[in-house]
Nucleic acid binder design. Structure first.
Lengths: 213, 213
DNA sequence: AACGGACAAATAATATATTATTTGTTCCGT
DNA sequence: ACGGAACAAATAATATATTATTTGTCCGTT
């Protein structure tokens, strides 16, 4: 009743967190024995988790050579961004069409906790994810949502990597607020345009930094 | 140099094949020990494979209760189809824009082997996948392609399931041919419209059958 | 000194053993 | 006869042990 969380899920959650937050750098070797000891589980559980993360695209396996954190590149970021723009636009359109009063208030609350984000690093990251997920969550298509989540995680990784080099020069909170306003007034065209711009602009800034070889 | 295929990859490939081809029915229990014995590998390898397939959405894990083949439903098929229409349209647009002469001939050859499909069941399935993949393969976005593959596998599962109840009453080969013609004449609008119709029509027919509860 | 091969250490991959949880069955009480 | 506790069998989950491959280092040869 309390914690039905299996060991593998722990491994996956922890590794995903560490990869997305860029505590584990791209290309870093993922030593199975070390990870097992760190998390306090068996090697088998770690391998199982790594296999799942590989399917998500956060980890790469080189046969007989073990696992590494997935690499990054400019072209990957570009493709990722365009894919995310496409998917998230679809989701947002669907959400605006189908979302009810509960969805609206959910978006509102998510934005509020985003406004008070400076509390802690981890909380801010969580609030950001919550907001973006709230926006699209009412689209009614589980497959699109699954992909949205995957792409979001990938994007976040790039964003966290860049934070180590330069903070955003834009009014990101303002952009989020604009999107929320458009969403709440059910202006699909405006909302999707703003979201597209938000995603592309973030990527554009990252592409300008030089943390990518 | 010859076969660097690891055991886990074998497990994944085999299980995916059996699930997609509907030899393993939705909801079927996946006994780890049995599978391990069948494939001739250790239980660990099987668990690792199952974890990967879970991330792909072909397998569901119930903590402490093992694994099952992912379930199906009318709503899932609908959502799946709409997601696939959206993604595959994007990919096709990109392919038509970027694809070169090599891509064209690749599509042509894939269609030819599709025409001679009646050879064997397995060969026909492979040809079908090859054709659909050839169409979108030049889109230049690895993320979209990754998703296209995922959704294609899911769709195929529904299609194979339905084959046990009724064969398609349409001229499917003709539809494929029309798509190819539109693609080769670089008529993006026509090609995407035909592809959308092709995917939706297939789903519509499946929804009419009663293999879905 | 540079290259190459052989040995040794590390570690990924696999197999087996152990433990814990679930599920099915039997048997008792009402 | 029905319901439920108690036991037993099955099996998922985990831990440990073994094997095979890779990687790094040292030494000998040219």
């Amino acid at each position: 009743m309390s914690a039905p969380e299996t060991q593998v899920e722990q491994v996956i959650a922890r590794l995903r967190r560490n990869i997305v937050s860029a505590r584990l750098m791209p290309g870093a070797k993922l030593n199975i024995a070390t990870l097992a000891q760190e998390v306090g589980v068996s090697a088998g559980a770690v391998r199982e988790g790594l296999a799942a993360l590989q399917a998500e695209g956060l980890v790469q396996a080189e046969p007989r050579r073990g696992f590494r954190v997935a690499g990054i590149s400019r072209s990957d970021l570009s493709e990722l961004t365009e894919a995310r723009v496409a998917i998230e636009r679809l989701c947002l359109e669907g959400s605006i069409k189908r979302g009810g009063i509960d969805w609206e208030s959910n978006c509102r609350r998510a934005f509020e906790s985003l406004s008070e984000q400076s509390v802690s690093e981890a909380a801010g990251m969580q609030a950001h994810e919550r907001f973006h997920h709230a926006l699209v969550s009412a689209c009614g298509n589980r497959w699109l949502l699954k992909m949205q989540r995957m792409l979001y995680a990938q994007s976040e990784r790039y964003r966290h990597l860049s934070i180590r080099f330069a903070s955003p020069s834009r009014d990101v909170l303002g952009e989020h607020g604009q999107i929320l306003d458009a969403v709440l007034s059910r202006d699909t065209e405006k909302a999707t345009t703003l979201l597209d711009h938000h995603l592309r602009e973030t990527a554009r800034q990252l592409l300008q930094t030089d943390f990518l070889t």
